[in-house]
Design a protein around this nucleic acid. Structure first.
Length: 168
DNA sequence: CTTTGGATCGTCT
DNA sequence: GACGATCCAAAGG
């Protein structure tokens, strides 16, 4: 949520710090993952595959390294801006249907690593509660794109939402 | 529709 | 020096 752009979170994955070999925080704090070990409610942004940014909400106790990866959003407002940021792509469900796509749609990069998500602002991303209840029966599956700790079903999503990324 | 391979570079070994 | 918490275009059915 930034500027005129707003969207609803419809897919996330949990990464459990030192307990989770698939987490960036598994091997302890480094320059890159420092934000993960900070206070909850802040944004952890990382760069991957030489071209993509991905965003997490830090959610554990300070020093724990626990975070939730934002994997997909349902666009609500500022759609033309998202389209523009995504290179003029037309298909609505392609705007935010992936962790790197949603960052591109919202213009999220390293500059926003560490920002406080709990404070509403026009100049940076933030997360708020608009009163929409969570799905009564959330979808659940193993996490996408990882090669270790594959056994845990720590991906959660809104069933039947067209913006949810398709699993490999 | 599905499958495949290329792009591209910061981070940690 | 290897490899990613990915995406997309192109090619094949």
């Amino acid at each position: 949520m930034r500027g005129a752009r707003r969207a609803r979170i419809v897919e996330v994955e949990a990464y459990l710090g030192a307990l989770d070999p698939a987490s960036h925080a598994y091997r302890g704090p480094t320059a890159r993952n420092a934000t993960m070990f900070g206070p909850a409610g802040h944004l952890y942004v990382y760069f991957t595959y030489g071209m993509h940014w991905c965003a997490n909400a830090v959610c554990g106790e300070e020093g724990e390294g626990t975070a939730v990866l934002l994997r997909a959003l349902a666009p609500l407002a500022g759609i033309p801006q998202m389209r523009m940021a995504r290179g003029g792509i037309e298909r609505m469900t392609a705007l935010c249907s992936g962790p790197a796509k949603l960052c591109q749609a919202f213009g999220i990069d390293r500059a926003f690593d560490g920002v406080d998500l709990t404070r509403e602002s026009r100049a940076k991303p933030w997360i708020g509660d608009d009163g929409t209840p969570p799905p009564p029966k959330p979808g659940r599956s193993s996490r996408v794109g990882i090669s270790v700790a594959v056994g845990h079903e720590w991906r959660w999503f809104v069933p039947d939402d067209p913006n949810v990324s398709r699993a490999r």
